[in-house]
Amino acid sequence: MSDIFFWVFSVMAVVSALSVVLNRNPIYSVLSLIVCFFSIAGHYVLMGALFLCAVHIVVYAGAIMVLFLFVIMLMNLKDVPEFVSKWWHFGAAGAAVAAMVFGLATHLFQSYNPRVIGDMQLKPIAQALFTTYAVPFELSAILFLSAVIGVVALGKSE
């Protein structure tokens, strides 16, 4: 059962990711990315990380993608040429990505050690965040605050 769902979600994720990259209409790119995020959320459910799934949807689909949609709607981006102009750029990009994947693969596949999460509960995560990772947690709060201030400063018209 979960096998079928795995394949469904995986195919959805890859197809929508390709659609993000290859679609000429920015709005469709955004929508494809939303679909992609939902299929990734589906994977999280399959892995039993229900809480992460919910947070993933709230953060990505609920906040980040709305921002993208917003920006794209506000600027009418029809006149921008969507792809790089020279043909060899595509080849070089493919080569670079291939090289990267090759390098990644040789490293990651040796050390990759998947673990079945089962029911990833909220409490241990919260406990880890507030004890072991307290300092990074506070720092990211500061990062957030400075981002808020920065965005307000940037958004203000002079």
């Binding site: 709005i27 229900l50 809480f51 949807i57 709230v58 906040a63 709305v66 949609l69």
Partner: peptide, 25 residues
């Protein structure tokens, strides 16, 4: 009975924005 039901609702609320945004655009 989702263990994260409240977050589910919250996610749906934010998801509801898309309907309005896409239709209007």
């Amino acid at each position: 009975d989702l263990s994260v039901g409240l977050l589910y609702l919250f996610g749906l609320v934010s998801f509801g924005v898309y309907g309005v945004m896409i239709g209007g655009w």
